[in-house]
């Protein structure tokens, strides 16, 4: 391995010596005919400009054909489909702009290379032109802003509504835990000082809402139902990222964040759609959270509602032994689970 290092140094030195020769030679030559040299530089670099434009754009299109199939499949959630649609509109606008501006830039660079018999066009102000390229982007952006904002409002309205199946995603270094709210659809309250080895989420066993809460190490969701994720962290900031559903929300210690969405395809359907029998959904941690950040994840499955109900039955309660003892009739506190958890 030291050989490698030595080789690198030797090779580097050789290159440097070679460069020195080239440079010395070049500066000797250039003294003689600077103008001719600049003229040839102008020729070659302007050709470089047009070549870079043409080859660059072609390679770009080629790469897009190659790599786009590797990007995420079509969204598997309701709002995700809307986001994908919006993305398509945005890309269309951006690509048109991209092509126009890059072509103009490199083409002009190519076309107007120096010619000593010519003067440039002394043209330095034109209010009409400035107005055009202020107003057109403004109109286009106004359209993008309004469509984007209205989609954002749709998405966040749902999260604020507190409707849907309540599931807590509890993040810690370096895993996620899911807690299903059970029949009452209310999470029992929790507090970080109550955390113990046997109660890693610090859940309040005396809270009536706790009794039917279920704990899972896998996120299983019923297709077609609205899901309300209630997200917490107990140590550092993590991020709940479900790329196939276009869902992301940070897990922040000291507060509860939410994201509501509706899965529209089961895992089996996705396997068919992608032609990949091994396809699985995934939840990843997407905020740097420590050394094993890259390994923080939770498996995700979407199933038909009936299968979901069956699966729920097999999950364990938060406090299995006390389950029977917990009085089911006590009314839940008026404030939402979210506020009680946030204290």
């Amino acid at each position: 391995m030291n050989i490698l290092l030595i080789l690198a140094v030797v090779f580097g030195t050789l290159v440097l010596v070679r460069l020195a020769n080239v440079a010395a030679l070049a500066s000797k030559l250039s003294g003689e005919n600077e103008e001719a040299e600049q003229e040839s530089a102008n020729r070659w670099n302007s050709i470089g400009m047009i070549a870079f434009l043409i080859i660059g754009l072609s390679v770009m299109v080629y790469i897009m054909n190659l790599y786009l199939p590797l990007t995420l499949p079509k969204a598997a959630s309701e709002h995700g489909e809307a986001i994908d649609g919006l993305m398509t509109i945005n890309w269309t606008v951006l690509f048109i702009t991209f092509f126009i501006t890059q072509i103009l830039l490199f083409f002009f660079a190519y076309k107007y290379r120096y010619n000593k018999n010519r003067r440039s066009f002394y043209f330095h102000d034109n209010n009409k032109l400035e107005a055009i390229w202020t107003i057109i982007p403004t109109i286009v952006l106004a359209a993008l802003i309004t469509t984007g904002m209205s989609e954002w409002n749709e998405i966040t309205k749902k999260s604020a509504s507190m409707k849907g199946i309540v599931i807590q995603i509890y993040a810690k270094q370096f895993d996620f835990t899911a807690r299903y709210a059970g029949k009452d659809n209310k999470l029992g309250s929790s507090f970080f000082r109550s955390i113990t080895d046997t109660n890693p989420l610090g859940i309040d066993s005396s809270d009536a809402a706790t009794a039917d809460d279920l704990i899972a190490k896998e996120l299983v969701l019923p297709k077609g139902a609205e899901v309300q994720l209630m997200i917490n962290s107990r140590d550092v900031i993590h991020s709940v990222y479900l790329p196939h559903f276009r869902v992301q929300m940070n897990a922040v210690p000291g507060m509860t964040t939410r994201f509501a969405f509706k899965p529209t395809k089961t895992t089996a359907e996705m396997q068919k759609e992608t032609g990949n029998p091994k396809f699985e959904f995934i939840m990843l941690c997407n905020k740097i959270c420590g050394v094993a950040h890259y390994n923080m994840k939770m498996p995700v499955r979407v199933v038909e509602p009936a299968e979901y109900e069956e699966w729920l039955k097999t999950q364990s309660a938060v406090f299995p032994k006390e389950e029977a003892a917990a009085p089911a009739a006590t009314p839940a506190p008026a404030d939402s689970a979210a506020t009680s958890m946030a204290k």
């Binding site: 302007s46 002009f108 107007y112 003067r119 202020t134 982007p137 952006l141």
Partner: peptide, 26 residues
Amino acid sequence: LLVAIPSAVKVFNYITTLWRGNIQFT
């Protein structure tokens, strides 16, 4: 998204500066 407007103005101004210039490739 408003930032994109002055940014666009700058880009078009650069491009127009090249237009009918007499470009020395240094």
